[in-house]
Design a protein around this nucleic acid. Structure first.
Lengths: 235, 235
DNA sequence: GTCATTTAATCCATGGAACGATTGATAATT
DNA sequence: AATTATCAATCGTTCCATGGATTAAATGAC
């Protein structure tokens, strides 16, 4: 939970000087915030973050040299608990998706009322995600579409369903990059038997070598048929 | 955009009889809605959906025989434009994530004020996503965590970066399940050269066969180095 | 009686290791 | 400017292990 006895340390990054000044003034009006830095340069912003460890970073995504998404990644690598809130001019679904995937905690459009920005800071400081309804919708446009594409591949005419239990076990080991001999040992059967199974797998998956069998399995949502337990790997 | 001259056709699925009745009464109060069906059985609900093509389906996730998530999948397979709004007793991040991934358009907790349910229906009918702030946060708990795990694998000590340009091209073809001879033809070099490259790739990725090289590539975010163009496959 | 599972034996193709060696581009040194 | 060193990319040959195709057959479960 947020500590209300301390001021929230906020840092601003926006390559547009006017915008930067505007936000700074807006936030300075709030007595509970403390703007620890404001810069037009992403790389400089990064060093400031390293130095001041702000609670919140308000950042434009659309910047020349270093782009906002890359900057989020760089911040992540610092391994500190700074929360990033993205400022953007556009409600582009792809951009929102990528920013959130990289760990942004909030997303605000520049066209929104300035009170929204305060809302965002409050919400994020409270450990929650701030994503206005419109942007949530945009996000899911992308997200659900990507998921649909994914399931298309693993659905339609899935040859994996034709495999027998044993063949599934063998395929599972194949997808771990194990050779005939070792598979035979693991399953405690002869190598020839393994070859027979593998050949049958090839037939059913309509491929003619192990690499393509593995590729087929991976791109069609192959899941080792539950009955098998993983064993620990000695380090 | 929603057509306000027509009543919204709503269908309810909830295995709890009391709850089902409650929701039905609540929604019947709204003059702009028309409850075309209400059932305690998911499979029956599915046939009703097929029959009546409702605009909105309000569905409990937590049901005995057929679980809510499976039901969403079944609805998707029907290929109709029905929007699913999930009703759930718990704000479990994993559950929210999976439901939304499967294409749910809204998610409401049973503990929420009943007005929220109306909000949800209105929002979803308007083509938007309805996900209350708390649930959005829960969703992203899961989503961002999964993304972080993903990037951990493709980040840390990535041996793929040590590959030369040519080796990248060869690896790209390897991950397509192509054999030495064909790779040689595609790159217009001799088969021995391909073998040399592949051997070097093995060395660098610390594996000793093609399957493991491919597996390494796929699990470490290998991307064919841009300079290569895909060619069409004849059908 | 069909189907999954198992084994065997044979045979050939492919994959992969282990040498060595040439060319050309680039960077570093003299 | 001439030199050396380095490295990517290329090709060749030999050799053996592994992979994979084919055919045939036995067992047990359902």
């Amino acid at each position: 939970m947020r500590d209300f006895t301390k001021k929230l340390r906020v840092l601003l990054i926006d390559d547009n000087a006017n915008h930067l000044r505007g936000i700074k003034e807006l936030i300075s009006l709030e007595t509970s915030y403390n703007v620890v830095g404001a810069t037009r340069n992403a790389n400089l912003g990064l060093s400031l973050i390293k130095k001041y460890r702000p609670d919140i970073v308000l950042m434009d995504v659309n910047m020349p040299e270093k782009d906002g998404l890359q900057t989020i990644q760089s911040i992540n690598k610092l391994g500190i608990s700074t929360n990033v809130v993205i400022l953007s001019g556009y409600d582009d679904s792809d951009l929102i998706y990528r920013a959130m995937k990289l760990g942004a905690r909030g997303y605000v459009l520049k066209t929104m009322a300035s009170s929204k920005l305060i809302d965002a800071i409050e919400t994020v400081a409270d450990g929650k995600i701030y994503l206005p309804s419109v942007l949530t919708t945009r996000f899911f446009e992308y997200f659900q579409n990507a998921a649909k594409e994914e399931s298309k591949v693993s659905a339609g005419e899935n040859l994996l369903t034709t495999l027998t239990g044993r063949e599934n076990e063998v395929l599972d080991l194949l997808t771990q990059g194990i050779n005939y001999k070792s598979i035979a040992q693991k399953l405690i059967i002869s190598e020839t038997t393994v070859k027979t199974h593998v050949n049958n797998i090839f037939q059913k998956l309509q491929v003619n070598d192990r690499t393509n069998a593995v590729l087929y399995a991976l791109t069609h949502g192959f899941k080792p048929s539950s009955t098998m337990q993983q064993e620990m790997v000695a380090a």
